[in-house]
Structures are given as structure tokens and as C-alpha cells.
């Protein structure tokens, strides 16, 4: 009966989606059986007992306990069964795993923004690896929206001032459509996103190179973006003021005196080392408080930060 499933449902891209389809198709056949019974009797009786002459008496058939019990109890048993089936699948789908990749989703009129564990962001395109549990944490900046992935048979309302979660594990690599399913005004019907379920290699590339937006950005711009979004700016100013760490203004090429008395010239290698292993060479007058960004920033982002610091003269 796969043709029926394919005809009624979009591609099923997760195990959960297949379970939903199984229940949907089962319910379909069951309801169809009831429907055929109703239509058969609704058509049969008027034809069979069509009025032939006026003013005839009819039989006094006003109740029948067995019949009435049958059509109360049988549907009751069936719907209780359907309830447990649906409830079980639902609860299973909402339990997230501890090692899930967490992606923050922010909705606003009429856009979806995604923020990955490494601090990088993408707009209207969500990348996740295939066969790995993912947990979306969603919130809205303005009105209600709903994140709806037909291929995964899942959705959740996205609510301003609150975080909701949506766990899933996609099993079919490829591009899947995401809709906004809660009415949100003029741009509602265009509030799409693409879900890219990547193969391990593709996801590796994505992690290394970042989303499409990153690839399109010149290095300095990417560096500025990273400076603002990845947390550099909370300790490093760009106007020369001293903060938790040295200011980036006029930092390039400077010779810095270190805590151990030696000195170092600020060049590409030193900046790279300071991002990945910050406590190795701490400038005198500062505490070794900076965390390592190993694994959080992509190579091109590190290059970008270097170029950005170069540009701050």
C-alpha cells in the first residue's frame, strides 16, 4: 500500500515520520470502512424503503439493546486503541537525547534564524547531520509562529517570551521544506526555511566552512561578524579602551610584553594561538581568563578575526 502513503503524504525523512504514516494509513482504512458502511446504509434504506403510497403505518422499532450496545462499545474500544497508539508515538518523539546537537532558532516576521553550537548563524537554512539527534530550541521575537517540517511530520508553535523545544533525528539526507504554520501576517506564506539534512561529509564541510552566508562574506566582514557574535567584544574593545583583555585597536604588529617577561610580536600566528590556546602567552597586566575557542570557530572565521584586527588602525 505504499502508493497510498506516497499519494497522501510527503516523503518520510525520519523513523518518527514513518510511524506517523503507519498510524495515519491504519486510521484511514478503519475510517474508510465506517464511511462505506454509513454511505451504504444511507443510500440503501431510502431506495429500498421508498414511499409507495401515502398514509401507511410503519413498524414500531424504537430500540434494541444489543444493537445499541454494539455501536457504542465497538467504536469506544477502537478509539481508545487509537488514543494509546497516537499518544505513545507522540511522547516518544518528544523525548530528546542528551548528546543531541542543540540549535537555537529565532523567529521573527518573516524570517527564521539559526544559531549553532559554535556561535555561527544561518538565515532560512538549517543544517543538521543525518542520523544524529538534534534538539531545536525555539523562540519568537514578535508574534506566534510555528516551525513545521512536513517531511519529519513534526511541528511546534514558537512563542514570544518562551523557549520551546523540538527534538528530531532525520534519517534521509537531502533538502526538506520548512513552513511557518501559525498565521503571522503579510509575509506568513513566504516564511520558509530549508532543512538540509547533510551526509557526514557534507556536515563536516558545513562545520568547516560555515553556512552559505559565511562563504559569501569577505574576510574582514566575517571577522567583524565573529567579533560581535562569538563573544570577543565582551573583553576586547576596538576603540583603544582597556578591558578584560587588550583592545584590538592598533594591536596589529605591536610588540607586547608578556607576564613571564618575554615579548612577542602580534602577527597571524600569535593571534591564532591566542584564540585556540589563550593561556599560552598572556600579555603583562592581564589575567589568564580567556577560554579557548578550539572547535567553536571555523578556520575561515579565525582568518577573518586576524584580518579584522589588521584593519583596526
Amino acid at each position: 500500500m505504499n502508493w497510498l502513503r506516497d499519494w497522501m503524504m510527503p516523503l518520510a525523512a525520519s523513523e518518527h515520520a514513518k510511524k506517523v504514516d503507519d498510524l495515519y494509513i491504519f486510521t484511514f482504512w478503519l475510517m474508510l470502512a465506517f464511511f462505506i458502511l454509513i454511505v451504504y446504509l444511507t443510500v440503501l434504506f431510502p431506495l429500498k424503503y421508498k414511499r409507495k403510497k401515502e398514509g401507511v403505518m410503519t413498524i414500531n422499532f424504537s430500540h434494541n439493546l444489543a444493537l445499541e450496545l454494539a455501536w457504542s462499545v465497538i467504536p469506544l474500544i477502537l478509539v481508545i486503541g487509537l488514543f494509546f497508539w497516537g499518544f505513545n508515538d507522540y511522547v516518544e518523539s518528544r523525548v530528546h537525547q542528551n548528546d543531541a546537537i542543540e540549535v537555537h532558532v529565532t523567529a521573527n516576521k518573516w524570517n527564521w534564524a539559526f544559531e549553532y553550537p559554535d556561535g555561527s548563524r544561518s538565515i532560512k537554512a538549517l543544517h543538521v547531520p543525518v542520523n544524529k539527534p538534534v534538539r531545536l530550541i525555539l523562540t519568537s521575537e514578535d508574534v506566534l509562529h510555528a516551525f513545521f517540517i512536513p517531511a519529519l511530520r513534526t511541528k511546534t508553535d514558537v512563542i514570544p517570551g518562551r523557549y520551546v523545544e523540538l527534538p528530531f533525528t532525520a534519517t534521509v539526507a537531502g533538502k526538506h521544506q520548512v513552513f511557518c504554520a501559525e498565521y503571522c501576517g503579510r509575509g506568513h506564506s513566504g516564511m520558509f526555511a530549508e532543512l538540509y539534512v547533510d551526509t557526514p561529509e557534507q556536515y563536516e564541510t558545513f562545520l568547516k566552512e560555515g553556512p552559505e552566508e559565511f562563504k559569501a562574506m569577505p574576510l574582514v566582514e566575517l571577522g567583524k561578524f565573529t567579533y560581535n557574535e562569538a563573544g570577543c567584544k565582551s573583553c576586547h574593545t576596538i576603540d583603544g579602551t582597556k578591558s578584560e583583555g587588550p583592545s584590538f585597536k592598533n594591536l596589529w604588529g605591536k610588540s607586547e610584553k608578556l607576564r613571564d617577561g618575554s615579548s612577542v610580536t602580534v602577527d597571524e600566528s600569535y593571534i591564532r594561538e591566542s584564540i585556540l590556546n589563550p593561556t599560552a602567552k598572556v600579555v603583562a597586566g592581564y589575567e589568564p581568563v580567556m577560554p579557548s575557542f578550539q572547535g567553536l570557530l571555523r578556520d575561515r572565521q579565525i582568518l577573518g578575526v586576524i584580518e579584522y584586527i589588521k584593519s583596526l588602525k
Binding site: 506517523v20 486510521t27 497516537g86 508515538d89
Partner: peptide, 18 residues
């Protein structure tokens, strides 16, 4: 009868707001 699909939780999550 189509209401039965919508009362079933896992199926409703897919069909809700469609």
C-alpha cells in the same frame, strides 16, 4: 471520521494548522 485523525496526538502534530 476525519476528526479521529486530528484527535490522535502524533498524527495531529503533522496535520495541525494545515
Amino acid at each position: 471520521l476525519t476528526g479521529i485523525f486530528l484527535g490522535t496526538m502524533s498524527v495531529d502534530i503533522h496535520l495541525h494548522d494545515t
